[in-house]
Design a protein around this nucleic acid. Structure first.
Lengths: 110, 110
DNA sequence: CCCTTACATGTAAGATTCTTATATATAAGC
DNA sequence: GCTTATATATAAGAATCTTACATGTAAGGG
């Protein structure tokens, strides 16, 4: 798994990205991120929940309590228009970082 | 320029990478990193100096005071064997992060 | 000679984001 | 009844960034 120092700052992009495909609750987000990156990128729930709270404060996502027929409560998040608008420049910034590090060091592009 | 949240954690890799080419002092490292990434990656010296200190504590780099003929003192850092050994897995970790984010989102590979 | 810019290093206060540990509670399967 | 999976949350602490402050030398122009 990718270490803490390296993956620092990726949670925001990861969350916005999985939410782009549709509304999700925190626990499921963590599962999808791990699954879609084949286990390379993994967030503990203790890191994820405060992050979701902060992103909601910033207006990028909006959470709503839902109770499934089984009786379990979930906080279902969806992208806000501001969140959608944020995703594109954020992706661009990450792409620029990749390019910069490639020029600086010899990081392979997978 | 790439924002603080995104570039977080890159200083370590950047420093080890520029030092791989030869010994350097802090001020010059900052200049080279900015130059080699065409201004995309930029570190303030206030971020760089404490980082150099921490990396020296960890045994990855070793600094030595030098006084140039002009009379200016510089702290010249060079990679230690441990620092050289650290570089390879660190690069691999960053490459894995790139791969993971590419799968997760639609970050272009520059 | 003075002033500004470039060189060169550092410290301090504060924000953000991660870690591990702890806590609670329901549902499903054995 | 017990364990595992689902689901959310908080707390203490570490690491890395930010801006602002602080110091001093060297070189070049006016």
């Amino acid at each position: 798994m990718i270490g803490a120092g390296v993956k620092r700052g990726t949670a925001e992009l990861a969350i916005l990205s999985v939410l782009e495909e549709g509304p999700l609750h925190g626990y499921e987000m963590a599962r999808r991120i791990e699954e879609q990156t084949k286990g390379a990128l993994r967030f503990t729930l203790a890191a994820l929940y405060p992050m979701l709270y902060r992103m909601e404060q910033r207006g990028w996502i909006r959470g709503a309590w839902e109770t499934s027929q089984s009786g379990r409560r979930k906080r279902c998040y969806r992208l806000t228009p501001a969140g959608k608008k944020k995703l594109s420049p954020l992706r661009k910034e990450w792409a620029e970082l990749f390019g910069a590090l490639k020029r600086l060091t010899k990081v392979a592009h997978a």
